[in-house]
């Protein structure tokens, strides 16, 4: 006995079947937009990014310095405690070299690939990473464990957004 008879339906179409109008279909777009309240912790985080600084929050119970800052520690489930400035340097925990855009379209020939990375921020607890992009680096030179530093937009261009940091670039301590 086999399961074959209990596999029913799933009639495959090709893109051509649709493009050539062999089947009926309808299209619609929601075309909606959102604006998000930032909340208390992220409002401060973004305000400090505008000032060219990264701010974190501490939990005095588990002793973590948490970035991005949050009003409660999700591990101890208690209100977080103190605002703490951390460095704008860190270590690459992991990275990718991405040739695909968000909607699955491909980057144009010659365009620099996207260089996302998780960066463990100096001054925050170990392993406390944020997602950002890398720049001013040849993709083949990127290594896990590499030290990097934030490259900020000029103060007058900063808007209070995570993109006030343009990217992180390799950095040698002097």
């Amino acid at each position: 006995m086999s399961n074959r008879q209990y596999i029913q339906g799933g009639i495959g179409l090709s893109e051509d079947d649709i493009q050539q109008g062999k089947v009926f279909f309808a299209e619609d777009s929601l075309n909606c937009r959102y604006a998000w309240d930032m909340g208390v912790a992220i409002e401060r985080y973004l305000r400090e990014l505008k000032n060219g600084r990264i701010i974190a929050k501490s939990c005095n119970e588990c002793r973590r310095i948490m970035v991005p800052p949050r009003m409660f520690c999700e591990l101890c489930f208690r209100p977080s405690d103190d605002w703490v400035f951390v460095q704008d340097t860190g270590v690459v925990n992991t990275f990718s070299i991405c040739y695909v855009n968000w909607d699955a379209s491909r980057i144009k020939p010659g365009e620099t690939p996207h260089l996302p990375a998780v960066i463990e921020i100096d001054g925050a607890s170990k392993g406390m990473g944020i997602m950002h992009r890398l720049g001013e680096v040849d993709p083949k030179d990127i290594k896990i464990g590499m030290r990097v530093k934030a490259v900020w937009k000029p103060a007058e261009e900063r808007t209070g957004a995570i993109t006030d940091i343009k990217y992180f670039k390799p950095y040698q301590e002097v």
Partner: peptide
């Protein structure tokens, strides 16, 4: 707020 502005893509998660 803290990630979407970087125009992330699902593949990033897996690749990272």
């Amino acid at each position: 707020t803290t990630e979407r502005a970087l125009q992330p893509n699902l593949l990033w998660i897996f690749a990272l």
